[in-house]
């Protein structure tokens, strides 16, 4: 991991938690809470991609949405270096989670999201041009300049500007995802959350869109939080990767380090599970546990083949193991885990 002081961070999240109430029984009584996210810390530098991987219930999607305040976080701090707020005479860094509605409106120009499902991420009853122009309209841009801007944006994502007049259902999945990216770029954000943004696409289209993300990053200095379940995809785009399990980050490392020498047994299990010609690697037992009833101690210990008695009682904190990796495992230094 990078030295914290050496570069001005774009986003710095500390202690992010998100709890959902659980209702049960005939009268839908509040029976408790699910901890979807539990003390998540992460940093993103300008122009950097942080990959966020995990299985269902890991909280990776919740993390992306909570940072953008599409879901209200329950706890935590998120310092963001906002260009727009600074230009409007505000402070240089803002805590996203404390921002009042007026400031949040400004902040939205700096951070955007691209969703997984290109079929539900565009308004089916509005033309492509209108869909892309909505953020510009909200920002108060006039109609003629919006049109011009939309044409430029469509061109930037590799689409003909004539598509403006079409409706979403007339476009293929890959084209729609490009439209969604164009809409996210409309307000020239510094930071984009890509939430499984390529997982619904066919492989040949997926590669096109991945390359588009990389080109846009080079051209515009964008920072990404790239949320995905596909390890190879995350490896392709990310500078650093955070592996999540049951609402916590269990390993956070530079991409090369993560795959060369994983430091958490769950990371090793994920790498082992990627299907391939070898297919002879160890298969981890069990399934991701239900977040309503998390295991004691280390959340991964019931499935971990290296588990010791201490793992069932004490939850290991995320700590720096080498300059390039941090892991939340009692035995991170001693285990010899298999990378790629």
């Amino acid at each position: 991991m990078r030295d914290d002081g050496s570069r001005a961070l774009l986003l710095s999240v500390r202690g992010l938690a998100k709890r959902f109430p659980v209702h049960r029984g005939l009268f839908r009584r509040r029976a408790g809470e699910v901890h979807a996210l539990n003390g998540v810390d992460l940093d993103i530098a300008p122009g950097e991609t942080l990959g966020l991987v995990g299985e269902s219930g890991s909280g990776k999607t919740t993390a992306g949405r909570a940072i953008l305040r599409l879901l209200e976080p329950s706890e935590g701090l998120a310092f963001f270096r906002s260009r727009t707020v600074a230009q409007a005479g505000g402070p240089e860094t803002v805590d996203l989670f404390q921002a009042p509605p007026s400031q949040l409106r400004l902040l939205r120009r700096d951070m955007q999201i691209v969703f997984q499902d290109p079929y539900s991420s565009l308004n089916p009853r509005l033309r492509i041009g209108t869909n892309v122009a909505e953020p510009l309209r909200a920002a108060g841009m006039s109609r003629p300049s919006r049109r011009e801007m939309v044409a430029q944006l469509l061109d930037d994502v590799g689409l003909a500007s004539s598509l403006m007049e079409r409706f979403p259902h007339e476009l293929s999945g890959g084209q729609r995802q490009r439209v969604a990216i164009a809409r996210a770029l409309a307000l020239q954000p510094q930071f984009i959350v890509a939430d499984e943004a390529v997982s619904a696409l066919d492989v040949s289209i997926q590669a096109q869109v991945l390359n588009l993300f990389l080109e846009l990053q080079r051209a515009r200095g964008l920072a990404y939080l790239f949320v995905a379940h596909n390890l190879a995809v995350v490896r392709y785009v990310s500078h650093r990767i955070a592996v999540m399990y049951l609402g916590r980050i269990v390993e956070l490392a530079d991409t090369d380090a993560l795959f060369a020498q994983p430091r958490h047994p769950y990371t090793e299990a994920l790498i082992d599970s990627v299907p391939g010609a070898e297919g002879a690697r160890a298969v981890v037992q069990g399934e991701p546990p239900n977040p309503i009833r998390p295991p004691s101690g280390c959340p991964f210990h019931p499935r971990c083949r290296y588990a010791q008695p201490v793992c069932a009682t004490e939850r290991p904190p995320l700590r720096q193991i080498t300059p390039a990796s941090a892991a939340a495992c009692h035995f991170a230094e001693t285990l010899d885990l298999q990378g790629v």
Binding site: R65, L70, R108, R109, Q112, A138, L187
Partner: peptide, 21 residues
């Protein structure tokens, strides 16, 4: 649906979201 979420993320007002989307 994600396009409504995208509207929130784009900073549209609630009235705008309800009436236009």
């Amino acid at each position: 649906r994600e396009f409504i979420q995208a509207c929130v993320a784009a900073g549209l007002t609630t009235t705008d979201i309800l009436l236009r989307h």
